[in-house]
Design a binder for these strands. Structure first.
Lengths: 199, 199
DNA sequence: GGACGAGTAAACCGATCTGTATACCTCTCG
DNA sequence: CGAGAGGTATACAGATCGGTTTACTCGTCC
């Protein structure tokens, strides 16, 4: 289980602009649909600079996904730290609220990891590890918050389902619905282990 | 809410081979990553024939998604007809079992509709109606099977979540886990409405 | 003051993209 | 027998793809 950590690039100002443009374009139109010429033009830099900084489009994709993963984890950590020591139900609730806020702010098209996975067929692609790492991290977080593997998996299903339902507009307020279901799930689990003492 | 039905093409033998190849390649590598030259070559036909039959790559994409939607609905209908008149719990169970069997047979990369949605940014694209139509149909099916909108939405979340969890291998036996949760959900709903005698 | 990193500008590469053109073949059906 | 549908083979079009190259500019820091 030694998934090699992908190589990262230090960002000069021009590189930062390129990455910002790439993030926006990749997420909105897909990875293969966006050419490096367009990214350079939108960032206001030359292709030469882009390749001097990143070396390849593939590496740019890695930075795109790894950066989004990092930002999401930081965003979530902030919300969870504010509820340190709170009951599990509240902390789980905070995750779904965070997901809703995140999605409303920069999410309109669902999960960038799932979307990228749709376009990458080769498991040897360096972005692959970022995608699977992100999803495993969320799965483990839910298991940790719920206290047991089983409930964690159910929370993962609700979370991933809500992401899809939101992105494809299957029904409105998908995150809030998932949140309600999650609360009921942990509520039942708590009353089971608390009330009768058996297990 | 009159989403125009996408135009469909009658399939000659060569067109059928092209569509089969396109389905396989689009699903495995993504839509933009696959060129029409490759599709024609894999199908053993010429590009001329391909364009004579479908007119454009866009139309080929529509046929790809609409065909998959049709086949899934037929597959599911067969399973549900075999359980006609059975209790709601059993019929819902059958949907998750069908999803698992379908995914194991030809699914390795998650939901083709979600994946296609990741690559299509323009809502005016004719394939867009196929994607949203498919998801709305599933949502309505679950609402119908569950008997109420609220439970239907939860089932939708579990179903979509399982598709993602399976496709990205977040944890093993995602469909069976979702199935168990779905059974418990409808079990609770039944005992609630059954115990109090109303209905 | 000289080396170096970051950047611009623009041409160029071979490959591949969607899509079209011309010419010819073969089978069926009226 | 003759027309039309379905097909092959091949060449071509213009655009765009990811990526490279050469030449030059501007700061900053030792």
């Amino acid at each position: 289980m030694t998934t090699k950590k992908p190589h990262r690039v230090e960002l000069t100002p021009a590189a930062r602009r390129a990455l910002r443009a790439a993030e926006r374009l990749f997420y909105a139109h897909g990875i293969h649909a966006v050419g490096v010429d367009l990214i350079a033009a939108e960032a206001g830099i030359t292709k030469k600079t882009l390749y001097d900084r990143f070396g390849s489009k593939e590496q740019l994709v890695v930075e795109y996904l790894a950066g989004r993963d990092e930002r999401w984890r930081a965003f979530l950590a902030e919300r969870l730290e504010a509820r340190e020591g709170a009951p599990a139900g509240e902390r789980i609730d905070a995750v779904f609220v965070a997901a809703r806020d995140w999605a409303e702010r920069e999410g309109g098209k669902g999960c960038s990891m799932v979307n990228a996975h749709a376009e990458i067929s080769d498991p040897a692609h360096p972005a692959y590890a970022v995608i699977t790492g992100h999803k495993r991290w969320m799965r483990d977080l839910f298991a940790d918050l719920a206290g047991d593997e089983e409930s964690g998996r159910t929370l993962t299903l609700l979370y991933e389902g809500a992401l899809v339902a939101y992105g494809l507009q299957v029904f409105p307020e998908a995150f809030d619905h998932a949140r309600t279901q999650a609360r009921q799930l942990v509520g039942r689990a708590a009353s089971r282990s608390g009330a009768s003492g058996d297990q």
